[in-house]
Design a protein around this nucleic acid. Sequence first.
DNA 1: TTGGAATTTTGATATAAGTCAAGGTGAATT
DNA 2: AATTCACCTTGACTTATATCAAAATTCCAA
Lengths: 229, 229
Amino acid sequence: MKKISRILSITPLFKGLSEQDLDEISGIAVDRYYRRGEAIFMEGEQANGFYIVADGQVKIFKTSMEGKEQILHIYGPGNPFGEVPVFSGSRFPANAQALVKSHVLFLPRNAFVRLIADHPSLSMNMLGELSMRLRQFTVQIENLSLKEVPSRLASYLIYLAREQGNAEHVTLAISKGQLASLLGTIPETLSRIFAKMSAQGLIRVEGKKLYLLDPLGLEDLAAAGKLAE
Amino acid sequence: MKKISRILSITPLFKGLSEQDLDEISGIAVDRYYRRGEAIFMEGEQANGFYIVADGQVKIFKTSMEGKEQILHIYGPGNPFGEVPVFSGSRFPANAQALVKSHVLFLPRNAFVRLIADHPSLSMNMLGELSMRLRQFTVQIENLSLKEVPSRLASYLIYLAREQGNAEHVTLAISKGQLASLLGTIPETLSRIFAKMSAQGLIRVEGKKLYLLDPLGLEDLAAAGKLAE
DNA sequence: TTGGAATTTTGATATAAGTCAAGGTGAATT
DNA sequence: AATTCACCTTGACTTATATCAAAATTCCAA
């Protein structure tokens, strides 16, 4: 139990709740463990609760008939996922799978809905969470529809640099294949773009460590720019 | 004032609220009128409230540097829009523009947040609304990333048929150019695909009226299928 | 440490969809 | 009825990215 409340206390979703409230949530949360690559839920499956990553890394994704995959989110400790069916529908709109060995908390729907009804700050937090998701999807749609792959990659690198608080270099938390799927492309294409961007001196690639050699050039590319031959 | 509460009463967002509550909301809502083509808000603009379509048609969209446009939603009477900044950020993530002469209600942020705090059913409705949006974006991302334009069009036609409750034919509420932008393509491409689909006997196009001649063929195409030459 | 699988890269080729340009159609306005 | 303008269509061409195949590299686990 101790372990659960520690995770809940670092979860932004529960910010502003009292110690007691957190205990109450601890009471309804259930531990679940997944191996690397294991499915957590599948698109279309009936949901009876949602999840919070306690430890590890989880991807939310769609797949096409032909087997191509599009990653929608990658979540780490403190991130909730699978909440959509709690508030609408009741079936998951996408698949969730553990990218590495992971520990997640499962929050049963009914108990949570009861909780939310008399904790306005919890519902405001959840509204904030869903709004952030909508914002993010907005960007993802813009990227897929209005930008080419090099721009998407540049945007992502800039985003990572900000997130990791280091303008010099970033470290990929995922494989390049998974990055391709996140950017809406395939590994071959991503690889070629890495090569081109390196040739132009925009970046230097050393395994999972990427040096951002020309931040302005990257900004430029992210905005609209074409990647020269 | 009479007019406002009639609109509020048909707005799903306010379902389950008492007559009094609706009156209270009427009190804080402000009428706004827009001409065809007029901007309602722009991406990045500071928001101090959200909107509900009372009458007319509004598009939410992003544009690229080069001027290509991607429509995210098209809303009609009873649909709320621009709520994201109410709960996160405070800037609009996209643009809104009236597609036809429109009447919208503006709900100031603060008054609405106060209202939501002590009306659990209102916050549940809003959570439901945002969840539906997330669901829809999920589909849109899937379409853009994993399906080709003919499949997207077929999906859209099937969706329209369901919405309009007629399996035989559907009527476009928007121009073909706008439809192209909604599907993430350009008018030329859409036009060619209409031509091809007509040649295969899948549909027949008569201006804004589209006859679905081969529902199974369309289902097939929507799922994954390729459009033959 | 080595063998084998997974991941990444490179090359040759195919293709869906975008661009540019020119007509055509139809509906509204004068 | 004539004119204009927005919308739609068609054609020739270009291009970004996917596909298929194979080689190279990296990563683990035996």
